[in-house]
Amino acid sequence: MMARIITTLLQLYYLQIHFVLLVSRQGKVRLTKWYSAYSQKERVKVIRELSGIILARAPKLCNFVEWRGLKVVYKRYAGLYFCMCIDQDDNELETLDIIHHYVEILDRYFGSVCELDLIFNFHKGSGLINSLRLEMQDSLVEIAKEQASLVSSLIAQATK
């Protein structure tokens, strides 16, 4: 049980989000956030390519797409697709949970967020992504501290 908890924590800690895209059903980009280095030309190509792939997928298909040696996890909420690009070996379900959490934050902030909120307040949507990442990191630090304390007490009990 302890090994499973530590493995989950390590997976979450090392989750590498390369970029976040919010795309409408019509293929219009509503928000982008880049955490890996892409030139402007490459960003345009990435957006065009991924928009085409995701919008063409049937609703019954899974929300994960393998792409250029990475994985894109997406979820449609109303008229928007929320997409995150992660490493190939990262946890897709954890990423879906992060996307859902981000949508909940947007809903709380805007009061039932809609596409227009993100069009006219894209800087707020971008800032909320950053705060989400900080929140995740803070949570991980707290969990790591608790786990370290637990491991220390288990070691102390074992050496008695």
Rank of each mutant, 00 (worst) to 15 (best):
I143L: 13
P59L: 08
E42Q: 13
S153C: 07
N121Q: 13
K41N: 10
I143P: 00
C85T: 03
I86Y: 03
W67K: 01
E66Q: 10
D87W: 06
V46F: 02
L9T: 02
L140V: 02
K160A: 04
I129Y: 00
D87R: 01
S51C: 14
M84S: 03
L140Q: 12
R57G: 01
I155P: 03
K41G: 07
N121M: 07
G69T: 04
S112P: 04
Q16I: 12
I129P: 01
W34G: 03
D97G: 03
G79A: 14
Y38K: 01
K28T: 09
L70D: 13
S51L: 04
T32C: 10
M1F: 10
E142N: 13
I155V: 15
C114H: 05
K60L: 14
L96Y: 03
G52C: 10
E49S: 11
L61Q: 10
D89L: 11
K145H: 10
A148V: 12
R108D: 12
V103R: 00
P59I: 09
G27A: 03
A144E: 05
L55T: 01
V29D: 04
F110S: 05
W67L: 06
R43V: 04
Y74D: 03
N91K: 01
C114Q: 06
T7G: 11
I47G: 00
L132R: 02
V65R: 00
Y13S: 05
L118R: 00
I105C: 04
Q88T: 04
K145Q: 15
L10H: 14
F122I: 07
G79D: 15
Y35V: 01
H101N: 12
A158P: 02
H123N: 11
Y38Q: 09
I86A: 00
E142M: 12
V73G: 00
S39P: 03
Y38C: 09
R4E: 15
D138Q: 12
L15R: 03
Q88D: 11
N130R: 09
C83Y: 01
P59H: 05
R25K: 15
A158N: 05
K160Q: 08
S112V: 10
S153I: 09
E104L: 15
M2C: 08
Q16L: 11
T7Q: 14
K71V: 11
R48S: 14
S39G: 14
Y102P: 03
Q88R: 13
V46T: 11
K71M: 13
M1W: 08
E94T: 05
Q157T: 09
Y77E: 13
K145F: 09
S149Y: 08
Q147E: 15
S112D: 11
Y81H: 03
Q26R: 07
C114S: 06
Q11P: 06
Q26E: 15
R76L: 13
Q157G: 00
Q16T: 15
R43F: 01
R108W: 07
R57T: 09
Q157D: 14
L106E: 11
A156Q: 07
V141M: 10
V20Y: 00
L15H: 06
D138T: 04
E146R: 08
R108E: 14
T32W: 06
G125C: 06
E104F: 11
Q88F: 14
L106F: 07
Y13H: 12
Q147R: 05
M136F: 12
E92V: 05
W67S: 02
N121F: 03
